[in-house]
Structure formats: C-alpha cells, structure tokens
Design a protein around this nucleic acid. Structure first.
Lengths: 335, 335
DNA sequence: TTGAAAGCGGTACCAA
DNA sequence: TTGGTACCGCTTTCAA
C-alpha cells in the first residue's frame, strides 16, 4: 500500500483534512503548517491517488487524442506538436488508435476532460457518442457541427499555392491529389484548386487534374507516371495534395529525368518541417502544424471550461514556405 | 450526474449491495433478481464509475504503450497489431508519445496494469521508474534485465537472409544499415550480418558495409548512391536494415537503372506487410509483427498475473517472405 | 486556523 | 439470498 494523506497527518500531528488543504495550497492553512506538511509529504514520496481524486473532483487534467490511422506522416507530425502544447498547458495527453467509438468509451471511463479527434469518417455521429464530453476535430468547418471543427482552410492554402505559381509565370498547373468526393478534407483541396485557377482565368482540363485515388506516396508516384505517359503536354508546375503524395511526385519526376525546379516546379500541401528532408526540399503550403495544434488544444481547453464561443478566432492562415522547388516558368512545351 | 447502483437499487426495490453483486454476476444472487436488476441497469444506460471501481479493485484491464518516436513505419505497424491483440485479450490499450519517464508517471496515475515500452535509449533505468508496474520491451535480450525484453532475434534474421542469398549463388552481399554502436538494436543486425557472412566464408570488406548513419529512407538512398559512385565493384545483393532504409535503397538503385532482381537482389529487414507495397515488392526477413506483438502482449499479461517465467518461451523465429526481389546470382561484374 | 464528518461510487465481508 | 456496513483515498463544507 502506498502513502496516503492519513500517514502524513499522523506524522505531522494534524488532521488529514488539514493535510489535504495544505497539499492543495489552500489559503486556509497557516504557512508554517503548510510547509511542514509539504516537507513530510516529499520525504515520504507521497503521490496522491488519482482515482480517489477523480472520484471527487471529476476532472483529470488529461486530454485524449483519437488517431485511428497511424501511418501517415503529416498526422504524426501534428500529434507530436499537440503533445507539446498540451503539456505546456498543464494537461497530459493520452492517445488511442482504436475506432472512434471504442476510443471515446475508453476516454470517458478514464474521465479525460476533452478529446481531439483526427478522423471523422465514421458512421456514428461523434457528438452523440461523446455525450457531453467536449470534442474538437479539424478539417473542414461546417455550420451544423455540434462540436467545433478547426477549419484548416484548405481552400485558402490552395489559393496561396496557385497564386504563387502564377506570379512566377506558370499557367499550366496540375493538381495531384485524391479527389474522391467521399473524403471531405481531400475534396476540399481539390475544390480550392479549381476555384483558385478559375479566379485567375487559368485553364483546367482533365490533364491538370490527376487523381491519385489514395494517399500513400506510391499513389502520387503512379499518378505522375500516368501523367507523363499520356500524350498531353506536361504542365510547368505541380501541386501535390499531401506530404506523402508529394514525396511520390518528386520521385517519379526525378526518375523521368526532370530537374526540380529547372524543368518543373513543385509545391506540396502540408506545412510540416519534414518537407525539407525530401529528396528535393519542397516548397510547401498549408497552415503550419504548430498553429493547427495550438488552435486545436486551446479550443478544446476553452470548451472544457465552457468558455468556447464559435467564431471567437479568425480563420487559420495558410503559409507558404519557400524551399527552392519552384522557379520562373519557362516557355510551355508543346501546345 | 450519471446513474449509480443506488438509483438502480431504488428502482429494483433491493439494496445497492445486491445490485453490485448482480452486476458482477455473483452466484450469490437469485437469477430472477439478477435478471431484473440487469434489465433495469440496461434501460437506464448504467455505466459503472471507473474511478470508483479502481479505488477498490486496483486493476484497470488496461495496457499502456510508450512510443516516443511516432514517425517510422515499422513501429506503426507493430503498434497497430498490438492494439488488436490487446483487445482480443479483453484489455484496452492507451498510448503515450511522451518521454518514458513522463509516460510511466501518467500510466501509473491511471493505474494501467502493465506497460509496453518501444524505446529504451533513455538515461534513467526503466525498472527504477516503473517501481512495481510490470514492463515489457523488445529488441535485444540481455541477462541482467530487470524486466523482460522480447528478443526479436536480429541476428537470426540476418543469418536467414544471408543464407538465402548464398543459396541463390550470391557471394558479394552488402549490408546497408545504421551501425553506430550506440543503438543496440541496429548494431545487432550488423553483428548478425558479419557473423553469418563469416560462417559461410564470404568476403566482407568495407565495400560490403554501407553505413547509413540514420534510419530514414533518405539515409538509405544516399548510402547506396555513395556506394554506386565508389570505384568498388557493385555487390550482387543488398540487405537493407529496415523498411524505411530499404525503400531508399530501391529508389537509388532504380534511379541508377538497376533492375531488381535482374541486376541486383535486395532483401529488406522488417517483416511487415507494407514491404509488398514498395515500388518493387521486397522480399523481407524478420520476425513477423504479428508474432512480436503476440509475444509482447502475452508476456506482459503473464507478468501482470505474476505468472511470467524467464525462458518460458523459445526464441522468436525470423521468417523470410519471398516477393521476387531476389534472383540467382549472375557472374560477378568486375573483380 | 484547524478538525470532524459527509460524501464521491463502488466492492466485499458479515449478519440476518 | 439478501441487506447492512465498513472501507478505498480524497475534497469540501461546516463547526469549533
């Protein structure tokens, strides 16, 4: 059995309720008494019983993160950042890689104070499952949401990327990504691209829209190979829809003896530091993970304290980080 | 406030201790009463209070996993498997990506029954930090360990790979991996390779030992490029020390216009299904993740029940999974 | 400024 | 078979 406040009380010659107050730094205890008690507690290596505390106090200063797909880079990067920020705010983070339903159940048992969800493509409506437990997600914001969704502004990011390339003189810009309409988040990048191109009056034919039908690097790789083998003229610039996809794009281009950025410019979505470690360090666009993580955690904490108001914060701002994978457009080959 | 056994007791017209027994399926309760109580509990959507239960019962049927490095493929694959097996054994899994020290603290608070550690390169001795909490790790077994380390038999895996290539007629086999002696696990693969080559009387010069000095795909990629640029004759086969490294190896070879396996054979360490999704599906070697996960979880559960005996299980068996990235050795180019 | 005591929601023992 | 009750370890009134 481990040390309890009663042990401390006995040693200190006070009642255990006094010990409780002292340990919680209550102003109701004389500072001498307080110091004495704290000293004894430290000597004994006292650790409060968490279960007992929560049986009474209800909150655990813990945030749960549900992350069902462990195998892509950008989320890994984000979850690492979230962990940092959670700690900075005196919370702990616990992760579950189970289904949303199971994870929520587990987290409710353990009485976490709130949950961050990484993936909402599940049948059951999260709000119903959460039942009172504060939940925050990210992706595409919608008005009807019953819990805050941090809008990472995919469309804004795409617009930034397209404008940047346009300023470099590019007109033939291709989008390489997964645009099955099932996946909200991916589809949003696609829509953002279309909109941005349209606003600038740039051409969008099927040759500019390369569907990877998947999110692994290999999907990006094969998509680009297909593009290169088609009869259509090669675009002067490519926007890759994610870190992993972009890594496949770069690989395919280099195998086909394209030099980046001399022969073709490439921008990758996902503003994570790992973009710099690719074969060709990639200029990337997107809300920096740090900002996403910040917003997620702070919104959740506000929810926990009942202080969250929709639209209290402005939209998240996508940033373009230059890394020399883009150059002035050259004469367009072919047409 | 949520439903408690007292609410149920009132409705059922029995005492709450009877409710407790009924809900725990005690044989001391008449089955009619039991059924009635269970029915009411279900109707009310009763969920036992976990904190209260643990304040009394001490164990949580939960296993914690400490996983400080979220960004490599093989561990991701393993953790996913562990989750499955943990569930199959009626436990839950919680993940922490914090430092070992912090994670252990968190897990102790939440009273998990045991912990699986993914990474022991930390200063503090884990056993001391765990203080009674059962811990299991994996990697290289050592006799002095104060907690079980599942030996994944790196040396055996290397031997299997080398023998396999040797039977195909290869004599010039290179090892591409990180062999800084600091990292026990990586170094063990290196030692296994050396030993296996020696046993077969195969030559090992510095041209056969390519140090990646890192574990990312890019490290494998650059290492192979360096190898190809050196004056030394190219080996007829390569063993890559991990999934990520092997992925870099394949990329570098293909860029240099080597056809796998016609021009060169490649085997990758890490027996994970993802090996099949590489550009060239790779023949791989290693204890299958399934077995590693199985052993980890079962050993831990034995420890939890105080039933673990060192050496109760034989060594884990590396398996070679063929995927056509190896062929009969051709005449050696050069020397 | 301190202490006593009533819970929090269960489990488990003992008595009826 | 059931009910009564003493904890588990802590927080939080309320009284002293």
């Amino acid at each position: 059995m481990s040390i309890t406040i009663k042990d401390i009380a006995t040693l200190a010659g006070v009642s255990y309720s006094t010990v409780s107050k002292a340990l919680n730094n209550s102003p109701l205890v004389k500072s001498e008494t307080k110091e004495k008690i704290i000293k004894i507690a430290e000597e004994l290596g006292y650790e409060p019983n968490f279960a007992a505390q929560r049986l009474v106090s209800k909150h655990s200063k813990t945030i749960g993160v549900i992350w069902p797909t462990v195998e892509r880079m950008a989320p890994s990067s984000l979850v690492t950042k979230i962990n940092e920020i959670v700690k900075k705010n005196n919370y702990q983070m616990l992760l579950s890689i189970d289904t949303i339903k199971n994870s929520l159940e587990t987290f409710k048992k353990f009485q976490v104070d709130g949950v961050i969800v990484f993936d909402e493509q599940e049948d059951e409506p999260i709000a119903a499952l959460a039942k009172g437990l504060p939940v925050v997600s990210y992706g595409v914001g919608q008005d009807e949401d019953e819990y805050p969704i941090i809008d990472v502004n995919y469309q804004g990011a795409m617009k930034t990327a397209v404008n940047y390339l346009h300023q470099l003189g590019h007109k033939h810009i291709a989008f390489v990504g997964d645009f099955s309409p099932i996946d909200n988040r991916q589809f949003e990048k696609y829509k953002g691209f279309l909109k941005a191109m349209e606003e600038l009056g740039l051409p969008v034919t099927r040759n500019h829209l390369i569907n990877t039908a998947g999110l692994e690097w290999l999907d990006g790789y094969s998509a680009v190979n297909r593009m290169l083998q088609s009869a259509a003229p090669v675009p002067t610039a490519i926007i890759g829809a994610s870190y992993d996809i972009s890594s496949g794009i770069v690989r395919a281009l280099r195998e086909a003896d394209f030099t980046i950025p001399k022969d073709i410019s490439v921008i990758g979505y996902d503003n994570i530091p790992q973009m710099a470690n690719l074969e060709v360090p990639l200029t990337s666009v997107g809300v920096p993970v740090q900002s996403i993580a910040d917003r997620l955690v702070h919104t959740l904490i506000d929810c926990i304290h009942g202080q969250y108001k929709p639209e209290q914060d402005g939209p998240l701002k996508p940033v373009l980080t230059e890394r020399n994978s883009c150059a002035q457009a050259r004469k367009i080959q072919g047409v």
